[in-house]
């Protein structure tokens, strides 16, 4: 079985309080990373306390706007500087008030914000997947409606028979 894990969505404004709370409770920050989506960048923070429940608690901040700003948690967890610098370099999200800030020069990639680049092939694949999902949903709705209509049609005839 996999490690015990939980997922909770939080707001950006709650991040620093969450970090302070976890630090006070003896947690360590395992990881922070980003997921690029069309609506923005989701940022996920993971905490665990060893020797306790051993549950990996994942907290997700959804849809931080591209080129937006987030606060740094290095004040509580200095070990996360590589991940926050990576967030800046690869996703273009500026992290404010870092203790160790490489100013977008941590990896020095050829392409800037490479993880937010959506290639034409990927875009076509996403549009195709969206079309298929939409068609599937429409079909499911149609089938459900047909089933409901059939059930409705059957019900009055049953009452008519009973009444006779």
């Amino acid at each position: 079985m996999a490690v015990k894990q939980t997922y909770t969505d939080i707001e950006l404004a709650q991040l620093l309080d969450l970090a302070a709370e976890k630090k006070a409770a003896g947690y360590r920050c395992v990881n922070t990373h980003c997921v690029n989506t069309v609506d923005g960048v989701d940022i996920i923070y993971t905490f665990v306390v060893d020797g306790g429940d051993d549950v990996y608690e994942n907290y997700r901040i959804k849809n931080v706007p591209h080129h937006g700003h987030i606060p740094s948690i290095q004040g509580y967890f200095p070990g996360v500087f590589p991940f926050e610098n990576e967030t800046q370099d690869l996703y273009g999200i500026t992290v404010d008030d870092m203790l160790l800030d490489f100013h977008f020069n941590f990896y020095s990639t050829d392409v800037s914000e490479p993880m937010t680049v959506i290639t034409p092939e990927k875009k076509a694949a996403m549009e195709k997947a969206a079309k298929i999902a939409k068609a599937k949903a429409a079909k499911a709705a149609k089938d459900a409606k047909a089933k409901a209509d059939a059930a409705k049609a059957a019900a009055p005839s049953a009452t008519e028979e009973k009444g006779e």
């Binding site: 996999a2 490690v3 894990q5 993971t46 990996y56 994942n58 999902a133």
Partner: peptide
């Protein structure tokens, strides 16, 4: 779609 999993 949307499924998440972590491991260590």
């Amino acid at each position: 779609d949307g499924a998440m999993a972590c491991g260590a």
